[in-house]
Amino acid sequence: MTTRKYYAPHGGHPPQTQLLSDRAVFTEAYAFIPKGVMRDIVTSNLPFWEATRLWVLARPLSGFAETFSQYIMEVGPGGGSERPELDPAAEGVLFVVEGEMTLTIAGERHEMVPGGYAYLPPGCHWQLRNEADAPVRFHWVRKAYEYVEGIEVPQAFVVNENDLEPNPMPGTEGRWATTRFVDPNDVRHDMHVNIVTFQPGAAIPFDETHVMEHGLYVLEGKAVYHLNQDWVEVEAGDFMWLRAFCPQACYAGGPGPFRYLLYKDVNRHAALRLGTR
Rank of each mutant, 00 (worst) to 15 (best):
T102Q: 14
T102R: 14
T102K: 14
L103D: 08
L103S: 08
L103I: 07
L103N: 06
T104E: 15
I105M: 13
I105C: 06
I105F: 09
A106V: 11
A106G: 15
G107S: 13
E108L: 12
E108A: 15
E108D: 12
R109K: 15
R109A: 15
R109Y: 00
H110E: 05
H110G: 11
E111S: 11
E111F: 09
E111R: 14
E111H: 08
E111G: 14
M112K: 07
M112L: 14
M112H: 06
V113C: 01
V113P: 01
V113E: 13
V113L: 10
V113I: 04
V113D: 12
P114C: 07
P114Q: 04
G115S: 11
G115W: 04
G115F: 01
G116C: 10
G116L: 09
Y117A: 03
Y117E: 06
A118Y: 02
A118H: 01
A118R: 01
A118L: 03
Y119M: 05
Y119F: 15
Y119G: 05
Y119Q: 05
L120G: 06
L120H: 04
L120N: 08
L120R: 06
P121G: 10
P121E: 09
P122N: 04
P122T: 02
P122H: 04
G123D: 06
C124E: 14
C124G: 03
H125G: 01
H125D: 14
H125S: 13
H125W: 00
H125A: 13
W126T: 09
W126C: 08
Q127F: 00
Q127T: 15
Q127D: 02
Q127I: 02
L128T: 07
L128R: 02
L128K: 03
L128W: 02
R129E: 15
R129C: 12
R129Q: 11
R129G: 08
N130F: 09
N130E: 07
N130C: 03
A132I: 00
A132Y: 01
A132L: 02
D133I: 02
A134T: 10
P135A: 11
P135G: 12
P135N: 10
V136H: 09
R137Y: 04
R137A: 03
F138Y: 13
F138I: 04
H139F: 15
H139D: 04
